Amino acid sequence: MKKIINNPSTVVDEALRGLAAAHADLLRVHTEPTYVVRADAPRPGRVAVVSGGGSGHEPLHTGFVGRGMLDAACPGAVFTSPTPDQVQAAIRAVDGGAGVVLVVKNYTGDVLNFETAAELAAAEGIEVRTVVVDDDVAVKDSTYTAGRRGVGGTVLLEKIVGAAAERGADLATCEELARRVVAGVRSFGMALTSCTVPHVGEPSFSLTEDEMELGVGIHGEPGRSRIALEPADGIVRRLLDGVVEDLPFTESDRVLLFTNGMGGTPTIELYVAHGIAERLLAERGIRVERRLVGPYITSLEMQGMSITLLRLDDELTELWDAPVHTPALRWGV
């Protein structure tokens, strides 16, 4: 294992100290329990948006704390859910009296711990709505989930609901928008290599030089199949077919196309893949109106990619375009 770390047991804490030092104008890092909040939290009279999950997927979620996106994020240990006390403390820290939306990826530990925190917050008089993201078309169930996993669609949901909250939308409106995104977003990923969790010290799985894992999860969970490595055209076609046919997306649909890197994929390869995806969608008559390309929900140093499509309407497009200013995503400011 070769990593730029000191000690596997302190890597998350040290990374958070670095995040706080680099972005003190945008966020604060709280410890015992650990959570990250906007520098201006709480915002009186505004709905707050809170998310979180295991570390190792950066910039998700801590890199999306800031104006127009998340009010708080709760980072667990690497590939480990945050605890209920972390989430409860984050809810308290950002509650401005208008309620809190919890954005939860569909992994068993995340769902249970966020649910417990929501119940504790409700007992304190804080109104909480929970939305679970389950956009991965690769498999119905996995080691970590009951149902589909939450993956790339989480980034798009956090941006859109965060923009609505920034504008002053009420809790019911923010929840409805979040559920609309969940209903209209699908993702599919693949891997060329595994990742190595620091405290484990060895790859999560192994692939030969001529193999790829189709439908891999962001924790290295197995996907649909292990098949022979293909050129980029074949890889992207497989991913896109799985996504398009699941909803299904149809001719004349307007979409946001998100081409995501898993952490170890060079940007040049992501743009190769994105260009292919644009061409294939055009051939189907599906209109790509918005785009996002880059490593925004990763799996440590895994080489691989995922494709996410979100069906757009005028309101979702407007909220996507709204200003955002976070460590990892910013425009319009």
Rank of each mutant, 00 (worst) to 15 (best):
R67F: 15
T145L: 05
I307W: 08
M212F: 12
V111S: 01
E175W: 00
G215N: 08
M262S: 08
R17N: 13
I160T: 02
V104S: 01
L102Y: 02
V131T: 12
R46A: 14
D135Q: 09
A20W: 11
Y271V: 15
R290F: 02
G54L: 01
K140E: 14
A165V: 03
A48C: 08
G54F: 01
L316Q: 01
T143C: 00
D246W: 14
S81H: 05
K3G: 03
I91S: 03
A277M: 10
L171E: 03
S306C: 06
W331I: 05
Y107Q: 07
T34E: 05
L329Y: 04
C195S: 14
E32V: 14
E245A: 15
V293D: 10
V151D: 00
K159G: 03
P248R: 12
A273W: 12
D313S: 09
A20T: 13
V12I: 14
E301W: 08
F258M: 14
A15S: 15
A48S: 13
G76Q: 00
H61F: 09
M262N: 04
R311M: 06
G18F: 05
S194M: 05
P266H: 06
G304Q: 05
N106T: 08
D134Y: 09
I268L: 15
P231M: 04
T267W: 14
E32I: 10
G184W: 08
L300C: 06
L281K: 01
M1T: 14
A169C: 13
T108K: 01
D313I: 07
A41F: 10
D95R: 06
V49F: 02
P8A: 03
E127N: 12
L26F: 11
T116W: 02
L292T: 13
G76A: 04
E115V: 00
T317P: 01
N6C: 10
P42R: 12
G184F: 06
V216H: 03
R179E: 13
A72Q: 05
G125K: 03
S142L: 11
H57L: 05
S81F: 00
T31S: 15
L120S: 04
V111P: 01
V139F: 07
L207M: 07
S51P: 02
G304E: 06
G275R: 12
F79N: 00
L316H: 02
I126D: 03
A24L: 09
P75M: 01
F188E: 07
F188G: 00
V50M: 03
S55C: 04
A273H: 14
I286Y: 08
V288K: 03
I160H: 00
G261V: 02
S55H: 02
G264W: 07
G153L: 02
A172N: 13
L281C: 08
G97N: 06
A117F: 02
T62A: 13
H199Y: 11
D313V: 08
Q303F: 10
L240R: 11
G54A: 01
G45P: 11
S204C: 12
D170Q: 06
Q303E: 12
S225V: 14
E289F: 08
R92N: 11
N260K: 08
D241I: 07
G147N: 09
L214D: 04
